[in-house]
C-alpha cells in the first residue's frame, strides 16, 4: 500500500538494468519499500541483475527477486505481472523503465533494427502497461510510473526514431492514466531531460541535464503528492512549452 506520506511496500521494476529505474527503486527502498522484483531479459543468471539486487539489499530491501522479462514477447507480459504479484503481493509501485536509446544514424542505415528498438521503447510498454493496469485495477490501488522523456514531447530530427517511440509511450501513458481515473490505480508520467547514463554515453550532453538520482527523487515526490506528470528538472516544463511553439523551420535547424 502507498501510505499517507507516499512510501510504498513493494516495487516492480520493469527494466532491471535501467540505471534510472534502479536509482528510482533504490530511492523507494530507502523510503520504506521492503520487497522488490527486478524484471529484465535473462534476469535469472545475470551478473548485472545480481549487482542491482545487492545494491537494493544494501539500501534496506528485505527481499529482491529477479524475474525474466522480455519486452519483445508481449504474449508473456500478463504472466510476468502475475508472477511478480505472487512474489511480493500487491504491486504498490511499478516502475516502467526499459527502453533503447540507440543511435539515430544506425537506425537510418538499418530500418529493421530501428523498428526493433522502437518496439522496445514503445509497443513493449503497451502490452506490459495494460497488463499492469489490469492488476492495479483489480487490487484497487497502485501507481504505474512511466519513464517517458522530453524527447517525446516534441520529436527532433536528431533522434526521431527514439523520440517518436517516446511520444507514443507518453501518449499511451496519458490515456492509460485517464482510463484508470477513479479506480484507485494511477499513472505517474516522468519526463526527464538529458540524463547522463551508460545508455546515453554516446550522445552529446544537452542543456538542463538531470542525474538518475534527481529522476528518482522526482518519482518519490510524485508518489507523495499524487502528481500525474513530473518534469526533471522541473524547469523543462516551461522550456518545452516554449519549444512546442517554435516554428517548424526553426525547430528543424536545432543543432541536435
Amino acid at each position: 500500500m502507498r501510505d499517507a506520506v507516499g512510501a510504498v511496500g513493494t516495487v516492480l521494476l520493469l527494466g532491471g538494468r535501467s540505471e534510472i529505474g534502479l536509482a528510482a527503486a533504490e530511492r523507494l527502498v530507502r523510503d520504506g519499500a521492503r520487497r522488490v522484483v527486478l524484471a529484465a531479459r535473462g534476469a535469472g543468471g545475470s551478473a548485472a541483475i545480481g549487482d542491482a539486487a545487492e545494491r537494493l539489499r544494501a539500501a534496506g530491501a528485505e527481499h529482491v527477486h529477479p524475474l525474466d522479462f522480455d519486452a519483445a514477447r508481449p504474449e508473456s507480459h500478463t504472466a510476468v505481472v502475475a508472477t511478480a504479484a505472487e512474489l511480493v503481493g500487491d504491486l504498490d509501485a511499478v516502475i516502467d523503465a526499459f527502453g533503447v536509446l540507440g543511435d539515430q544514424e544506425a537506425f537510418e542505415d538499418d530500418p529493421a533494427y530501428a523498428a526493433e528498438a522502437a518496439a522496445a521503447t514503445y509497443t513493449g510498454h503497451v502490452s506490459v502497461g495494460l497488463a499492469v493496469a489490469r492488476r492495479l485495477r483489480e487490487q484497487g490501488h497502485g501507481t504505474l510510473v512511466v519513464l517517458s522523456s522530453v524527447a517525446g514531447v516534441r520529436v527532433r530530427r536528431a533522434n526521431f526514431v527514439y523520440g517518436s517511440a517516446k511520444a507514443g509511450l507518453d501518449g499511451f501513458a496519458q490515456g492509460l492514466g485517464d482510463a484508470l481515473h477513479g479506480t484507485g490505480a494511477r499513472v505517474l508520467i516522468v519526463r526527464p531531460g538529458y540524463v547522463p547514463t551508460r545508455m546515453s554515453a554516446h550522445v552529446p550532453a544537452a542543456p538542463f541535464p538531470a542525474t538518475a538520482e534527481q529522476v528518482a527523487g522526482a518519482v518519490a515526490e510524485g508518489l507523495r503528492t499524487g502528481a500525474e506528470t513530473v518534469w526533471v528538472p522541473r524547469r523543462l516544463r516551461l522550456v518545452f512549452a516554449a519549444m512546442r511553439a517554435l516554428p517548424r523551420p526553426l525547430w528543424r535547424r536545432l543543432p541536435r
Binding site: 500500500m1 501510505d3 484497487g140 490501488h141 479506480t183
Partner: peptide
C-alpha cells in the same frame, strides 16, 4: 466501486 479514504483524506483506494 468507490474511492475511499479515512478522515485524513490521504492514500485513496477503490
Amino acid at each position: 466501486s468507490t474511492l475511499l479514504t479515512g478522515w485524513g483524506r490521504t492514500a485513496p483506494t477503490a
